[in-house]
């Protein structure tokens, strides 16, 4: 039987995603019975989805300035 420490490590390191079917089932079983680990699991997963949603705000003015710098650099022949 896996303990909480092993389950947390497995979740955060992605071991549970790459492990075999039986291994993944034993993790799911632990999560179903353990409120603390399932909370940890939800939070780790939420961090990823937040990252996908927020991205990095990139002001137009900054993008245009960067574009001009880049084009100037590219036009300078080495």
């Amino acid at each position: 039987m896996l303990n909480c420490s092993q389950v947390a490590r497995s979740i955060a390191s992605d071991e549970y995603r790459t492990g075999g079917l039986l291994y993944r089932m034993s993790i799911r079983l632990h999560l179903a019975m353990c409120r603390q680990c399932s909370r940890y699991f939800r939070q780790i997963r939420a961090l990823g989805s937040v990252l996908r949603e927020v991205g990095d705000e990139f002001p137009i003015s900054q993008a245009l300035a960067a574009r001009d710098r880049l084009l100037a650099r590219l036009s300078r022949k080495p």
Binding site: N3, C4, S5, A8, Q36, C37, R39, Q43
Partner: peptide
């Protein structure tokens, strides 16, 4: 430090949902 000798949560994750 979050787990005891048996690997159970000593300091469980706070509710930050």
């Amino acid at each position: 430090s979050k787990f005891d000798a048996h690997g159970s949560w000593r300091q469980p994750p706070a509710d930050i949902e």
